[in-house]
Design a protein around this nucleic acid. Structure first.
Lengths: 337, 337
DNA sequence: TTGAAAGCGTTACCAC
DNA sequence: GTGGTAACGCTTTCAA
């Protein structure tokens, strides 16, 4: 491993002062073009790399961003969130200090403390499901952005998936394929603490309304988000005198049960029943037969957003809504009219 | 945000020199017990926290460990691996610099370079599936440990799951429940580049042998690891003149298909057929009905291991094998004799 | 066993 | 525009 060059070495070789080298490094405009290129040449030639430690010590900045994630270990989505944040941070020369708070407020607090001690430049707080959170006042002492959640007082910039647009597009897609008898299985009560289902319900209603299709109350079911409830709600749907031709499942996990229920009555997806899911949950979505068409939660994009927003000169405390794209697979069939 | 205390502040308040404070901080034995406790009292009282930047600058150590993961984004296991490593690193006061190399050797090389520039103290290289890897020579310039993989030359400490023991225990568990007609569905050819299936096959054979059960060739099937092949291999098994009473699926994803195939012939899990999977793959394992009993891949443990091994004074280049515990759920039924 | 002082590699201020 | 120099907070000699 070669000896590390310092700013002194550069200064000597370029025959300038260390101050000038520092200015070149930091894009200070007060350097003559000629001097700059002379210094830059030396830097490039020997492949000089500034010391993060020295820089941090001097500037009192850590080049580190804290990433507090809740319940990382219990959801396959965390990976994409972290990847998105990591990529964005890497590009800007920042390190990510990732801690899993395990959904425990005390742990969350301790994580924040430890991060403050390390002088992080900012905190990304990431929930694993779209929800409202209340953060302790301690978070105000450092720039903070929220991912997949928002605080009641809207004190921090935050980003959440566009549940409305996702559901609207999903329903629209079904309508475009000539479906009219479109059922909806919600993943939780409309009044639950998770706002996702409210948005999805509204998106579904709006798409129907625009297409001039009456909302059939018997087509709207409330499940619990898991495969089991997907099965029972779908069974109920299939036993209707006039069952739907398409089902929009508000979680991919419920779609798992939906597939089973459709099979159980001797029908098949997508030939008899078209299905669109929501979440684009890894594994489920590809392992199902046929592979499930679904609306993707923009986790990687939210990860990017979080770092880029945090690093802006003055982040504005507003709620950003990121689109949920349609991922076409093979669970929707076009109806002939 | 309170002003940060420095070692000077401590020294003044404790009426000692900064050197002494430093010695206390670093557990130097050459400090009188009385002095030590006096200094420690001040430290505790004002909650002093040393500056990582200053320490790094002075010691030329970064307190940072590089974590290169391949294909993080494509597997739900990555989360546990990262969590394990993160927890262990956190405990030792280290930061983790995580980069996803996306299975691209060039990216892997670039990641390593960037990490070396940041003077990481070591590198954890984590594959997402048990496999052999070849690392460029550049890795020799820094302490490196391998996770879920090993290098052909066994130059680095590495850890992999104990596939043999996992399969052995799974089969044993079935035998303990009085099963004798136990089928095996492998997730890949025995000769594939992934050594996992070889170990699992051997564990299965050994357990059978120990119990005095003859290996029935028609009970050993080779799938492709996915739900689709799980379905077809299970169907073949069920069509045998004397079908098995238990199936050991070498991947949970195949178990998904196994469940479907069992249902397709009008039977049920676990009443007619017991199933044990392998991998403890999130989502699948809980969403299946009944929940799948399976052998867990020790990802979090491997994460721990990687950091702890890296931080040892002199890591020894040997392959460590970590046990795969049995996770009991509800897919195994005890046969009455 | 302890205190004083010399750096570690930067940045930022102050002269020129 | 540029060069010198004093910090930043710590560890580690070296003397005492």
């Amino acid at each position: 491993m070669a000896k590390r060059y310092t700013i002194q070495d550069i200064a000597r070789k370029a025959e300038v002062g260390v101050g000038t080298v520092s200015r070149v490094l930091n894009d200070d405009p007060n350097v003559k073009t000629k001097t700059r290129s002379k210094v830059q040449a030396v830097i490039d030639k020997i492949g000089y790399q500034p010391s993060y430690a020295a820089r941090s010590l001097r500037t009192q900045k850590s080049n580190t961003i804290g990433f507090i994630a809740d319940a990382v270990a219990t959801t396959p989505f965390a990976v994409n969130l972290i990847k998105g944040a990591q990529d964005a941070a890497w590009e800007q020369g920042k390190l990510l200090l990732i801690v899993d708070a395990d959904n425990d407020p005390a742990r969350r607090e301790r994580a924040l403390e430890s991060m403050l001690e390390r002088e992080v430049e900012g905190i990304v707080y990431a929930a694993m499901y779209h929800q409202e959170v209340t953060l302790s006042d301690a978070f105000r002492s450092v720039p903070t952005v929220l991912v997949d959640c928002y605080s009641q007082d809207e004190m921090y910039p935050s980003c959440v998936p566009d549940e409305f647009q996702g559901a609207y597009d999903a329903t629209k897609e079904l309508i475009r394929n000539n479906h009219e008898r479109i059922a909806l299985i919600l993943g939780a009560e409309l009044e639950s603490i998770y706002p996702a289902m409210r948005g999805r319900y509204q998106g579904y209603c709006e798409a129907l309304k625009e297409a001039g299709i009456d909302l059939a109350p018997e087509f709207v079911r409330v499940g619990e988000g898991n495969a089991h409830s997907g099965f029972s709600e779908t069974s109920a749907l299939m036993n209707l005198p006039e069952p739907p031709t398409a089902i929009f499942c508000c979680t991919d996990r419920m779609a798992l049960g939906t597939y089973d229920a459709v099979k159980a009555v001797g029908l098949s997806v997508p030939d008899d029943i078209s299905v669109i899911g929501f979440d684009n949950q890894p594994v489920i979505v590809e392992q199902l037969h046929p592979p499930l068409s679904t609306m993707a939660l923009p986790h990687e994009e939210m990860g990017h957003w979080s770092i880029n927003t945090l690093l802006k000169p003055t982040p504005i405390p507003e709620r950003q809504v990121l689109p949920c794209p349609y991922i076409k697979r093979a669970s929707v069939k076009r109806l002939e009219v």
